[in-house]
Design a protein around this nucleic acid. Structure first.
Lengths: 122, 122
DNA sequence: CTGGATCCCGTTTGATACTG
DNA sequence: CAGTATCAAACGGGATCCAG
C-alpha cells in the first residue's frame, strides 16, 4: 500500500503528470477524440498523450470509449469522479490567466492561442 | 516571450514542478528553514529541494531569507503573491484526502505520516 | 554542522518511423 | 486515425565534495 507524507501527494499522483492538468482542462469543455486533443496540445507527442490518458483512465478520472470502426475512433471524457476536480481545474485556469496578465500585461502570448482555437473550431 | 496554448499552462509553469505543490503546502503552515522542509519531505533530495525552491523564488511565490551566521540558516516563506495560491493548494489537499479515503478506506497510509509529523514536532 | 554544488547514472520524455 | 517501437536527449536520484 502506498504511503503519503502529506495528503496532497495523493492528488499529485493523479493529476501531477506533466500534461494531465491540461488534458483535464480540455475535457471539462466536453468529450473529445484523440486527434482533437492532440491539436489542442501542439506540444505533446502521440506517445505522451496516450500514456497520460491511460494513467488518467486507470485512476478513474476519465473515460475511454472505443468505436470499433475503420478508421479508428476513440473518445475521452471526464468520469463523475473526474468532475470532482472541476473546482481545482477552474481555479488553476483562472490563476494562470492572472499570472499571465501580471507578467505580460499586453496579453500577446495568449491571443495567438485564441486564434488557433478559432482556426481549429472553424 | 513565452506562448501558452491554454492559460492553465502558465499556472503549471509555476507550480507544475514535481515537488512544488508539496513545498507550498508546507509553507502555508508557516515559515520554515531548509533542513526542516527536508524532514517534512523524506522523499526529496537536497538537490531537488534547492532547485525547486530557487524556481519558486524566481517566480515570486516564495521568499528566501538568509541569516549570515554559523552554522548557516535559511528560511523560506510564501510571498503575498504566493498566498494567492492558497485556495488552490487547500483544494488540492482536500481532494487528496478524499482520494485516499476513496481508495484506501482504512486510511492506514496517512496515519504513519501523522506519527512522523508528531515525532518531528516533538 | 547547515545549506548548497557537482558528478555519475538510471529513468523519463521527446522525435520519428512504423503498424493495423 | 489511434497507438506502438526505437533511439536520443533531458531530467531526477544518490553519493560526494565544498563553503562558511
Amino acid at each position: 500500500m502506498k504511503k503519503y507524507n502529506i495528503p496532497v501527494e495523493a492528488a499529485l499522483e493523479v493529476i501531477g503528470g506533466k500534461w494531465k492538468v491540461v488534458i483535464l482542462c480540455h475535457l471539462i469543455e466536453g468529450t473529445k477524440r484523440t486527434g482533437y486533443l492532440k491539436k489542442l496540445m501542439p506540444g505533446i507527442t502521440q506517445k505522451m498523450l496516450t500514456q497520460q490518458l491511460r494513467e488518467l483512465e486507470e485512476d478513474g478520472v476519465i473515460n475511454r470509449k472505443v468505436y470499433n470502426q475503420i478508421p479508428p475512433k476513440v473518445e475521452y471524457s471526464l468520469t463523475e469522479y473526474g468532475w470532482s476536480l472541476k473546482g481545482i481545474l477552474d481555479s488553476l485556469c483562472s490563476w494562470g490567466e492572472h499570472h499571465i496578465e501580471r507578467n505580460y500585461p499586453s496579453k500577446e502570448e495568449v491571443l495567438l492561442n485564441k486564434d488557433e482555437r478559432d482556426t481549429i473550431k472553424a
